[in-house]
Design a protein around this nucleic acid. Structure first.
Length: 259
DNA sequence: ATGGCTTGCACCGCAAGA
């Protein structure tokens, strides 16, 4: 079973990239972020033609999350959740579904803009409430996968220039503590089960030829519960779509599970 | 270095992203 996460930065623009990548990489389950599409405009038919079913929770212009599953994945989507209990939030940033024997939670974590900004306070509160949600999910579903655009660099290995970034947005101690509170539930950053080194990134700024110079951040993560840890056989970041014409600024991250 | 790209929307500059 191959699982992936990709912030496509507009599914309207990136549908050709997505269908090409689905054909190339053949993932079984894919979590998307920043679809930026109302549900009525989600490309259900085009993805069905590519061999994938979908659930989605979107809005106009901003945010938007979706989970795709190959038709061959057993069972359909069930037990779908689109809102964090206890958080009245119009922003479409979370989508949970059971599929193929897994519980999948797709997150598009708040960016936060800058320390001290009201969006930063929203980010920390959102993370805390997601943690409470995930704690309950983990009780009910040991086979939990939490993946998406976390908008937090777990540690300095995940930052191209940790001195320049310092404790600024995406790297601040409160953000990292918010992420650690989630991983401390018993969720493993699957990439780090296989690769301890630095300079592996999932996002590069569009400006300053950042991709060519590998000036990036690793902020797209696939977390897995303890019960799935021994089933993990490989994790990777697929930089290929970042080289294509008119790319997303994020590239897909993947995990292989022997289940 | 606070801008540099890219997106969507609504107009032809703006907010937002990370």
């Amino acid at each position: 079973m191959k699982i992936a996460s990709w912030n496509v930065n507009s599914l309207n623009v990136r549908l050709p990239h997505l269908t090409q990548w689905l054909a190339d990489a053949r993932p079984d389950i894919v979590a998307l972020q920043e679809t930026k599409l109302e549900d009525a405009k989600f490309p259900v038919d085009q993805l069905a033609a590519a061999g994938y079913r979908a659930v989605y929770s979107g809005q106009k212009t901003y945010n938007g999350v979706a989970i795709l599953a190959r038709e061959q994945v057993r069972d359909g989507f069930s037990d779908i959740v689109t809102d964090i209990p206890g958080l009245d939030d119009p922003q479409r940033r979370i989508l949970a579904a059971s599929i193929g024997g897994l519980r999948v939670v797709d997150l598009y974590v708040v960016n936060g803009k800058a320390l001290g900004d009201e969006k930063y306070a929203y980010k920390l509160d959102w993370l805390a409430k997601v943690r409470e949600f995930l704690a309950r999910e983990l009780e009910r579903h040991p086979n939990l996968v939490v993946l998406g655009d976390f908008n937090i660099c777990p540690d300095d290995r995940d930052v191209y220039d940790p001195v320049a970034w310092g404790e600024d947005i995406l790297c601040s101690p409160p953000e990292r503590a918010g992420l650690k509170a989630i991983t401390d539930l018993g969720l493993h950053d699957s990439f780090r089960l296989f690769e301890p080194g630095a300079q592996h990134y999932s996002w590069w700024d569009y400006r300053q030829a950042a991709f060519r110079r590998n000036m990036g951040l690793r902020i797209d993560l696939i977390l897995i519960g303890e019960a799935l840890k021994s089933a993990a056989t490989a994790a990777a970041i697929d930089r290929e779509p970042r080289r294509w014409e008119r790319p997303s600024d994020h590239t897909p991250v993947t995990l292989e599970l022997d289940i």
